[in-house]
Design a protein around this nucleic acid. Sequence first.
DNA 1: CATATTTGACCACG
DNA 2: CGTGGTCAAATATG
Length: 302
Amino acid sequence: MLSCCGEGEGRPIKSLVEMEMQMQMQMEMAAPRCTSPGCNHGTVIEEISRAHELTSQLRAFLLPLLPSSSLSELAVDHLTEMIECYNSALSMLRAAGGCRSTPSDASGYCADDQKRKRLEGSEWPVVPKKRRNENCRPIVTSVLYDGYQWRKYGQKVIHGATHPKSYFRCTYSKDQGCPATKTVQRDESDADPPKYIVVYRMAHTCRTNMDANLPYALESSATDTTSVVVRHQHFCPPSAATPNPSQSSYLSDGDQELMHLVFPQEVPGTGLDTEGETLSLPWTWESLELDAYLKTMMDSMY
DNA sequence: CATATTTGACCACG
DNA sequence: CGTGGTCAAATATG
């Protein structure tokens, strides 16, 4: 019934590789344009930001589809690495061109390796009461689902900001000592769809998502349906996997609107109502005409 | 009962 | 001392 691990197994991978190549080409083409006289620096940043956003969406959309295989992990790794590259490129461009950066972007992009090493050997939740903006990865995106499971632990009204900032830590922070945290704050602009400034701190050390799901998928490998269902439970956006609003990491205080970010309006049949309270899920791509949607995504990049 | 969110308090940084 | 990040008790939900 669900063909995620069936005959269509190779298709997502193929699409993924093709799209990776195209997006990398776009990124390579965008950078040189930046150096030409009269180049609109902001436009280049805008284009790369768009590519970054689309890559993030692509990764989120493909996670539930990929079968459990080393090739799938490789593909996801590539996508993740691409996102990192976009971040790096954006930070370099912003630093070089003095362009507007996000509020938390003052120190620019920097890898988390430093901080990861610093935290090695320490026990959760030994984290500084207050962190600086060092070792953070600010991202401006309209898609909040990033494939990880987050637990909200705080919300603050930030001085001068219209919208509150939400604080999330990895769901497995206690179980596995994963130090990953992130903050999400809606951008001040009235962009449609609304943009969110997501600041990631620390890298995930937990084995979740792809890896953590492998045992489940393998155990139920006898029936593809079960396998897929389990995978959906883990990969679904938190708001979808946990219809209970109080158990959603994204639905607090005015964040109801975030629901559509997980299920973009271009994707039909998500079963979401406008209140974000009733979900006719599980979320399945079966009726989503993935190919058509991916094609639309790619077309929008050119 | 287990798990997740909410929210006021606390605390460190600048 | 103001601000932002985190804690933890209260609360909500299945």
